[in-house]
Design a protein around this nucleic acid. Structure first.
Lengths: 145, 145
DNA sequence: CTGCATGCAAATGTTTTGCAGTAAC
DNA sequence: GTTACTGCAAAACATTTGCATGCAG
């Protein structure tokens, strides 16, 4: 399988953009870290490696990563954008615990299929979707008792 | 069925809060207008009725409406909060056209059921969920050809 | 060399908050 | 009379942008 980094550099080349050390550092950090990082969190981690990188570049680069198809912007509802890896990791939805903030990536093929059908019934061609399930996880439920 | 306005005033009373003319005007506008209004749009419409109402009050009141259970905050991904009526209108998901911005409220009982199951499989008790389906509607698809 | 990319700071846009005055209960 | 509520302006955020400089191609 093609590597995410390669997808990114090819996208750069194809669009007459440039591969810079800043961009490489940001992509590296992004690909290394699992989960759903905010721009702020990415910025903090990149600064450890290279303190000279600016916030604006992180913002600009994350947009670029989304355009290139290796990142995806997600919103959990707290007003901050988060990014997750898209390339090489199959699509998934989110199951979020409202008590501890824990976030599970879940997938249900049956639901996926029904979403397509539902859209089709309304004359839509689906391009993507986001599904967030909010609830309370087992641990929080038992410890609250 | 109990009216949404009544649900709101009861919530106010139960929590030692106060019914003010500003709040009443904002609730009235919110309940009258269908769709998914931003705070800014609500503010504009309220100002027509009473120019003295401030933006901050609209923000504060919308939070209150959510707490009381008659409003729900939704995010379509453009960084602005929108509010839709919750009380008296059954739950629904969103089917959004990426070309014209049109927004259909949709519901599929089978998906709802599977979401519960999915959450349960992971030990979660579901409290709510948000599902956004993005695609292109029939009109946009044909006019683009 | 050319033009895209960078860091900085200023600007933007949305939402929140402090405060002194006002009004509901 | 309390206590919560209001409008205003300032503040707090996250994010974007203008600009002079730097550097990849």
């Amino acid at each position: 399988m093609k590597e995410a980094l390669q997808v990114f550099t090819e996208y750069i080349a194809k669009n007459g953009l440039k591969v810079t050390p800043q961009r490489l550092r940001i992509v590296e950090v992004f690909l290394r870290e699992a989960g759903h990082l905010t721009t702020e969190e990415l910025y903090e981690r990149v600064k450890v490696v290279d303190g000279s990188v600016g916030q604006a570049t992180v913002y600009r680069t994350m947009k670029l990563l989304c355009d290139s198809g290796i990142a995806k912007e997600v919103h959990f509802g707290d007003g901050v954008a988060r990014y997750e890896q898209k390339y090489g990791s199959e699509h998934h939805d989110h199951l979020i615990c409202e008590a501890c903030g824990r976030n599970l990536e879940v997938i249900d093929e049956e639901i996926e299929r029904l979403q397509e059908e539902l859209a089709e019934r309304h004359g839509f061609t689906l391009t993507s979707h986001r599904m967030y399930l909010y609830g309370v996880c087992e641990d929080c439920r038992t410890s609250k008792k």
